[in-house]
Computed example of a mutant assay.
Amino acid sequence: MWFYSLDCNQPLAVWTARTFFHLPYQNARMSAAEDDGFIDYRCQRRGESSASHFRYCIDAEVQAAEAGTLAFFLAERYLLFSRTARGIRCGQVNHAPYPLAKASLEAWDANPLLQAGFADPQRPPDHIIGSPGVDVAVYPLSA
């Protein structure tokens, strides 16, 4: 997987990820609140004047993605790549299969895309999927 940017509200985690894994972590203020089954999520990077806002709902029913499906391709990544002064590096990622669920999106903005250098798509995302998450281990980078 290639990360264009990663927001995080833990300065030590940002420093560690940037220093040892060369990942594009950014310091940010983040908040999430549940409201009538939806999650209101806000994120404002340090130095940015506006915050991103997303309002979404993740279904309670989860299942692992089947091999060969779009969900499997998007979620089940076991290598990460980063650019260093010495070139592209690769790190192994280990985690249990993600429990995935259908998700719906009520509000979104293009700030994360713009911050990563992409143009505003002027439309909502083509694909939305959610997960309650899994624990992930990342191993040292190699050439």
Results as ranks from 00 to 15, higher is better:
Ala101Tyr: 08
Arg29Thr: 13
Gly47Met: 10
Asp120Gln: 11
Gly68Pro: 03
Ser5Trp: 02
Gly130Ser: 06
Phe54Trp: 15
Leu79Phe: 12
Asp120Pro: 04
Arg45Gly: 00
Asp7Gln: 02
Glu48Ala: 08
Tyr98Ala: 07
Phe81Thr: 07
Pro112Asp: 02
His95Val: 02
Ala116Pro: 09
Leu6Gln: 03
Gln10Val: 14
Asp120Ile: 12
Phe72Gln: 08
Ile39Pro: 01
Glu61Gly: 07
Gly47Cys: 01
Asn9Pro: 12
Leu114Met: 15
His53Cys: 08
Phe3Pro: 02
Ala119Asn: 15
Ala110Ile: 04
Gln63Cys: 12
Cys43His: 05
Asp40Tyr: 08
His127Ser: 11
Asp59Gly: 01
Asp135Trp: 10
Gln26Pro: 04
Phe21Tyr: 15
His95Met: 00
Ala60Thr: 11
Glu76Ile: 11
Ala64Pro: 08
Asn27Thr: 04
Phe72Trp: 14
Gln115Asp: 14
Pro11Phe: 00
Ala71Val: 00
Gly130Ile: 03
Phe38Thr: 03
Leu100Gln: 02
Asp59Lys: 04
Leu6Pro: 01
Asn94Leu: 14
Asp109Ala: 04
Leu23His: 02
Leu70Ser: 13
Phe3Ile: 13
Ile88Ala: 14
Gln44Asp: 03
Thr69Trp: 01
Phe118Ser: 05
Leu113Trp: 06
Trp15Val: 09
Ala119Ser: 13
Ser50Val: 09
Ala116Lys: 04
Glu66Asn: 08
Ala75Asp: 05
Ile58Ser: 07
Ala107Leu: 03
Gly47Ala: 07
Leu23Trp: 06
Val93Gly: 01
Lys102Ala: 08
Ala32Asn: 07
Leu113Phe: 06
Cys90Asp: 04
Glu66His: 07
Asp36Ser: 14
Ala64Met: 05
Ala32Phe: 12
Tyr139Gly: 07
Gly130His: 08
Phe3Trp: 10
Glu48Phe: 12
Ala13Arg: 07
Ala103Asp: 12
Met1Gln: 04
His53Gln: 14
Phe38Ile: 03
Ala60Trp: 00
His53Lys: 14
Val136Ser: 01
Val136Asp: 04
Ala67Cys: 10
Ala51Asp: 08
Val93Glu: 10
Cys57Trp: 09
Gly87Ala: 14
Leu141Tyr: 00
Asn27Cys: 09
Asp126Ile: 04
Cys8Trp: 03
Ile129Leu: 05
Leu141Val: 05
Leu105Glu: 03
Ser49Thr: 10
Ala67Lys: 14
Glu48Tyr: 04
Asp35Ile: 09
Asp35Thr: 11
Asp36Val: 01
